[in-house]
Design a protein around this nucleic acid. Structure first.
Lengths: 327, 327
DNA sequence: ATGTTTCACGCAACCGGTTGCAAGCCCCCA
DNA sequence: TGGGGGCTTGCAACCGGTTGCGTGAAACAT
């Protein structure tokens, strides 16, 4: 159906290798010939078949991006930044969603392996072992988690968590709950560690939870029962669900309980009360991840670790700790 | 690096064609041989290279899904459903985001064309002409827009708009504003037509707007000035931005103005007030689109049109029209 | 006039699979 | 015992490109 390199060769009276070079090494072909070939190619609507090219060159000029849950508003900015950035490097990014299922994640990686030059693993749910094993098939860059020996882009959630806890402490909250995400989450662990390093606050660890509003909603009872007046949630979605759940129980935010989220998703800005949250440099992370990946594709495994700074955005979901009930 | 079919052939003492058949036509090879080959393949970690296979078969077993803006929470459920459904058919789905840019959209389609068997175009921004032209390169299914001669999945937004307007009319709103989306949007047009068909309400058309909270926020002034007490917004994001903007102006929702969104995104359920909205069957649309696409890939262009019903979900952002000010 | 470069291009093998054709084998039946 | 048919497997061409090598011609130096 579509024109192939041989059609173009025949129509312009040259050998296929000349057509090939016209596109992949133009300086090797006489300008006159080149223009003729280009004209014919244009005329026939010929475009080199990237897949076929990849077969011999080993370069597909595609990148894969694997994400646990596209619905999580944390990812789209990262995805968009990665795609836009990759495009400037003449690469395309294919996104796949694993539905939080490690099995699916592995299957997708294998399927992608031969069709892309490298894969961006965003918050992977796979075990380190599995990741290292699969790494033999295709270069990786891991985002939002540390896997030894692998190029990694981290957002300094520890710093963010510390800022958040200090913010709460500064408002007089003496007892703060950490509502964590999925069990074994690398992020949750870092948050706990960082929070524990802040002096003068009493920490309660709650969870694990699904990292969605549902999870937050479900955690509301626990939080209410914990006696904490400040909460650092796993992410904004959990925070929003939690606020909703607390509200249903008649607990006021920020009057009775202050809540801090993580991610700074757009919806948090529209929430009522507007969410105080740890802002993640997602777009920068997406670009950085692409850079690292292309670098590691080109040069072979350089296991750089990039850590991006986070910041605290104070809005309306946090306020002074309530007076201790004088009962 | 990775094992090829020839490695497996050599290691198991058979010809490559036998290995090939072991995977793609198992019934043609002796069970004994087959098991030996499978064992060796397993041992070497061999997996057929899908791209190479595609070269001869013309089937990549991949689908492309192109979307204007992944950040729009309307799409993720559709994407997830499409991916999950495709997986059951042994297909993989690659998602790409065009950033609302027709240029990028076209480029992505061309890039994907040779690497997938078909493309799902979700709310494309390209002109009908361009779509028809590109259709020569790769089968399409269009979602959320009508392009003649192409398999299409539609959600009956007209019906939804009618339900919404009737709901508002039933609450006593006599003057209703339609806050539309991007200029030339197919969806906006359908909504206008359907709304116009409802008797007894006075319609005001506002817009165009970006289909995001920003757009809604920006439209607040216009809405406040329009004298409408009911609003049907282009989508939930716009509705939420609008509510936020009205709130900033001291206009109460639903006290002073009732707002209906479209899409039924998750965030709308967490909004305060919870959004009354037209629920779109996004997951069903994703599955249906995959089915149509695979069908058209297998059988050649059958230009089916599937229209999926929508429904109205009444929550808290709509209420009785206020008493006319007795000034 | 001869020798040496340089340039442009063709030849053919190769990437990793698939597939139509045919050959070898065994079995069955007449 | 010979012929027909079914199974299993190998052979080789092919999909759409790329690329190392070699050749012929033109350009330049000697």
């Amino acid at each position: 159906m579509a024109a192939t390199i041989r059609d173009v060769a025949q129509a312009s009276g040259v050998h296929v290798s000349t057509v090939s070079r016209t596109f992949s090494a133009p300086h090797l072909v006489n300008p006159e010939t080149r223009n003729r070939v280009l004209a014919v190619a244009e005329d026939l609507g010929y475009r080199p078949n990237r897949a076929a090219r990849a077969l011999t060159t080993g370069r597909t000029h595609n990148l894969g991006l694997i994400v646990a849950d596209i619905s999580n508003p944390f990812f789209p900015p990262l995805i968009k930044a990665a795609q836009a950035h990759a495009r400037t490097r003449d690469y395309h990014v294919f996104v796949a969603d694993t539905d939080e299922d490690p099995q699916v994640e592995e299957e997708l990686i294998k399927a992608l392996a031969k069709q892309v030059d490298g894969v961006l693993l965003c918050s992977p749910r796979l075990s380190n072992r599995a990741i290292e094993r699969l790494h033999a098939d295709v270069p990786f860059v891991v985002v939002n988690r540390e896997v030894k020996g692998m190029p990694t882009v981290l957002m300094d959630i520890g710093q963010g968590a510390r800022l958040a806890i200090e913010h709460l402490a500064g408002l007089g909250h003496l007892r703060v709950a950490l509502v964590s995400g999925p069990s074994g989450s690398w992020t949750s662990k870092r948050m706990r560690e960082a929070a524990a390093a802040v002096d003068g606050v009493d920490l309660v660890f709650l969870g694990p939870n699904t990292p969605t509003e549902q999870g937050g909603l479900a955690a509301a009872a626990e939080v209410a029962a914990s006696g904490a007046t400040g909460v650092l949630a796993y992410n904004d979605l959990v925070a929003m669900g939690l606020i909703e759940g607390l509200h249903e129980r008649g607990v006021q935010v920020p009057g009775d309980v202050s809540v801090v989220g993580v991610d700074d998703i757009v919806a948090g800005r529209l929430n009522r009360p507007k969410l105080t949250t740890v802002a993640m440099p997602t777009a920068a992370a997406g670009r950085m991840a692409v850079d690292l990946l292309l670098q590691s594709v080109a040069e072979g495994g350089t296991a750089t670790l990039a850590t991006l700074a986070t910041g605290l955005v104070v809005r309306e979901s946090t306020g002074p700790a309530p007076e201790p009930a004088a009962s």
